[in-house]
Structure formats: structure tokens, C-alpha cells
């Protein structure tokens, strides 16, 4: 196993050079580690990764950090701008600070953990990603969310889950209001089990029993129960 750590200082290396170096890693290249210094809010850091590399960003990142991620683990020791882990396919993105708008937007898979708060439109149009926000989320979160799980340890802003399809939302705190066609649903054993596993994986101390579940009332889109297995 290659445990070598590559250090990249973004005050000396361009984002394009960094991302191209990360893209050139062979898809099965083992556990190479990268540490990124002086990110200074730059956009598109560690975008489009496609190997099981571990990237640690030591500071605040700008827009679209770790976008389109596949298989990589990207840890941000700071805040992130708009669209962190946008369209993630797989892997893990962990924001140690707060995230701006549209965190995890359109994500198909993988896990996004945000230790702080996420602002508006967290998980908008999510398509299978799991998002765990330990703090609160802003308005219009999980808007048109299609699949996956949005788990919020704090509160949720206005219009949570507006026009939601088959994604699941779990909130521990207060929900300001629910969007169109989003309703509270029963917490069944499989939901508590899912949360317990997620919390164990993320090493957080939430209790599944403290969460409430929200999802689609299925009045707004062309849902037919015979096709439920396809979602």
C-alpha cells in the first residue's frame, strides 16, 4: 500500500495543476494521501476525482469543492462555498466547518458529512446521495429531492422538501415549514436502523429516536405504488 503523502500549496500551484495531478492517479491506485495548503477560498478544489485517494484541505474552500466525486475521500478543515460535493457519485466528502448553498446538490451516491450548518437548498435535486448535516439547514433544502437521505441534526428552514419525490428526510430539531407535498411520516424500525448505522459510520452521537421523518405525500407527481421498487 502506498502511504505517501503529497503536499500541495495552492499559493504556488494552480487549481488546474492540482486537479490534473489528482485525475492522473490510476483508478485503483490505493490509499495515496494528499494535503492541500493555502486553499484561500479557491473554487473547484479536488473536483472530478475518480480514485480512492484521500485529500485533506487545510482551510476554507470556495465553490464546487469535491464536485462530481467518485470513490475519493475529501476532508475540508474549514468552510466550503456554494455546491460542495455537487453531483457526487460515490465516496466521502466531510466538511468540518459550515457549507454554503446547494451542498450535495444532485448527488447520486456517496456520503456528505457537514459538521456545522448548511445554508439554503442543501440536497436540492438529490438523486441517491446521503447527506448528514450536524447543524441546521437553510430554506428550500431537499427541493425536488428524488432519492437518498438528508439527515439534519439541527433545525430546517422554510419549505423543507418542497416537491419531493422519493428521498427521505430526517430532522432532529424544528422544521420551520414543509414545502408542497412534503409530509411527516412514521419512524419505522428500518429508519432507526438506517440512522444508527449512519451515525456509527460518521462517529456522531445522535440518537435515532430523537429524529422525525419527512417525505413525499405523492400527490404532486405521477407516482404509482406498483412501481415503488424502481425508486
Amino acid at each position: 500500500m502506498n502511504k505517501k503523502t503529497s503536499l500541495v500549496d495552492l499559493s504556488r500551484t494552480s487549481i488546474r495543476e492540482l486537479n490534473q495531478a489528482l485525475h492522473r492517479l490510476p483508478a485503483g491506485s490505493g490509499s495515496t494521501r494528499w494535503r492541500i495548503r493555502e486553499p484561500r477560498g479557491a473554487h473547484a478544489i479536488a473536483c472530478g476525482l475518480n480514485s480512492p485517494v484521500r485529500v485533506e484541505i487545510e482551510g476554507h474552500a470556495g465553490y464546487y469543492c469535491a464536485g462530481m466525486n467518485q470513490r475519493a475521500t475529501v476532508v475540508i478543515h474549514g468552510n466550503t462555498g456554494v455546491g460542495v460535493a455537487e453531483n457526487m457519485m460515490s465516496g466521502l466528502v466531510h466538511v468540518k466547518g459550515n457549507a454554503s448553498q446547494s451542498a450535495g446538490a444532485t448527488g447520486h451516491g456517496g456520503l456528505l458529512i457537514i459538521d456545522g450548518d448548511a445554508s439554503a437548498r442543501c440536497g436540492i435535486s438529490m438523486k441517491g446521495i446521503d447527506i448528514l448535516v450536524q447543524g441546521s439547514v437553510g430554506h428550500a433544502s431537499a427541493f425536488m429531492a428524488q432519492a437518498g437521505n438528508l439527515v439534519v441534526g439541527g433545525d430546517a428552514g422554510e419549505a423543507l422538501g418542497d416537491s419531493i419525490y422519493e428521498a427521505r428526510i430526517f430532522v432532529r430539531g424544528k422544521v420551520k415549514d414543509l414545502g408542497s407535498d412534503c409530509v411527516e411520516k412514521e419512524m419505522r424500525p428500518e429508519h432507526r436502523e438506517f440512522l444508527a448505522k449512519l451515525f456509527a459510520r460518521a462517529k456522531v452521537r445522535f440518537r435515532p429516536g430523537d429524529f422525525r421523518r419527512y417525505g413525499s405525500a405523492r400527490q404532486l407527481y405521477n407516482f404509482h405504488v406498483d412501481h415503488a421498487a424502481k425508486y
Binding site: G41, A42, G62, Y63, N79, G81, N98, S100
Partner: peptide, 19 residues
């Protein structure tokens, strides 16, 4: 508009940051 513009300010590492 973006955090990048704040990075040149003295003491930004310890500033209270919020959206």
C-alpha cells in the same frame, strides 16, 4: 460576494465568518 475576497484581510484566520 465570495470568501476569496476576504482572505487578504489581516486576522481573517481568526475572524467570525458567516453567510
Amino acid at each position: 460576494s465570495e470568501y476569496r475576497s476576504l482572505t487578504s484581510l489581516p486576522g481573517i484566520e481568526k475572524a467570525k465568518l458567516w453567510e
